[in-house]
Nucleic acid binder design. Structure first.
Lengths: 237, 237
DNA sequence: GCCTCTTAGTGGTCAGACCACTTTGACACA
DNA sequence: TGTGTCAAAGTGGTCTGACCACTAAGAGGC
């Protein structure tokens, strides 16, 4: 009766049901591919594609030689695929992504100012030093920058927020921002933004944190807008 | 040298490269599965799994009998998988999701108040009537409610924001909210929230829109917190 | 010139085999 | 008794080749 959906798709739905019905819980192991295929009366190939699909979604995890397991189903697991957006996006979509970040990061930073533990602040401070210090490579600066923002959002205690924020950030874009600012001699402005955010967190001042985060995102946003306009006018190599 | 990654994973990376390098663009057709497999010197099965993975991510689209195509790569395409989070989440994670929405929706609604076209406002008003009117089924109310919020976010003109917001909403959760409020006789409060938001949009008053959206999300948030506490104390059928 | 229908080519599914890896427990040894 | 080794069973990963279901385009008739 339900011939519209493909065999594989039905298998996906069935496995989802097994999870939502509690037949298998987070971290638990599923029956073998061969068993599942036999149970639904489909070929192992089709079952494998269904499992591949759910693996991509972050719902399942296949361990070679050991079985297929349900992940912890935490936000970070399920939003890993989210990063594809930031990776693939270009031009105007990147501006849209930054606009979303301008809504989230200030609120998240303000929340972090109220909630961050002392240990959080120490860790964030250490990352700030790694950004400010003269690092060996540009890659290290990018890593520290990503870690800095990630640590702040994580210190809100909201794992979903952290996962969403991470999905809106991308290493390649971040590297492009630093390269662009370095070329123009504006890296000090970026460092100053970070310092201002950190100070607000240490002072446990949500309003100041919100303002500092807004300024930072808007700086990047304005830079990107200018960069995009520049590339449109002078399409170089 | 790179024997750590699986054959399928390599195929995924390779196809991603073909897209990011511009070898195939959005909407264009890829070579056949058989061709791609032969080109990378892997079996068709493995190539199919790679394609399945990218299909799940919203990067590719397979059309039976017609070929495999790159999607438009728009945010909505890539964030379709995002909804799995809202679907699977329960308990505390749902609270986290609402907390994120409390950061996004007020900002988005304020932006909509400034940017929405007259046509947008008409459409939003129509959806409001569908919520307020005496609908045949509860399902219709939920549909109209989802459409109402979606239309508002869409009228910001930011497709990424719309896609993210949609990913944070779920039909099942929304239905649960209405059912819970109906049971307690509080549906009027929900309707009043919506009316307040709509009025702020029509008045093109970003501040009022922000406040109205905040109130609305917080109402749902408080209801969920109470509901979760209630279920913990009285775990019924 | 238009419609119908065949047909080549595509993705979807199946079957069975073998490979790579993990886990476990029997076994020899200290 | 405890411990390390390693062989074997079972798992996911890959390959092959066949057939089915569907689409699109061209050949043919009208």
């Amino acid at each position: 009766m339900d011939d519209r959906t493909s065999v594989t798709q039905r298998a996906v739905e069935r496995i989802k049901e097994m999870i939502s019905s509690g037949e298998v819980g987070p971290g638990q192991r599923l029956p073998t591919e061969r068993d599942l295929a036999a149970r639904l009366d489909i070929s192992r190939s089709s079952m494998r594609e269904a499992i591949r699909s759910l693996t991509t979604l972050g719902v399942l995890e296949a361990r070679h030689g050991a079985g297929v397991y349900v992940t912890a189903l935490r936000p970070a697991d399920l939003l890993e695929t989210f990063s594809v957006l930031a990776e693939v996006s270009r031009g105007d979509t990147l501006l849209e992504v930054l606009q979303v970040r301008r809504m989230l990061e200030p609120a998240a930073t303000a929340l972090a100012a109220a909630r961050a533990t002392d240990a959080d602040l120490v860790r964030i401070g250490a990352l700030l030093d790694r950004i400010d210090g003269a690092p060996a490579t540009a890659a290290e600066t990018v890593t520290a920058d990503l870690g800095f923002h990630q640590a702040i959002v994580a210190s809100t205690g909201n794992a979903t927020l952290a996962a969403v924020n991470q999905g809106l950030s991308s290493r390649t874009f971040n590297a492009r921002v630093w390269a662009g600012h370095r070329e123009a001699g504006f890296t000090d402005e970026l460092r100053e933004d970070h310092r201002r955010i950190h100070e607000a967190l240490v002072a446990r001042d949500p309003d100041a944190a919100r303002a500092a985060a807004t300024v930072h995102v808007m700086r990047v946003e304005r830079w990107l807008a200018a960069d995009l306009a520049d590339r449109t006018e002078h399409p170089g190599a």
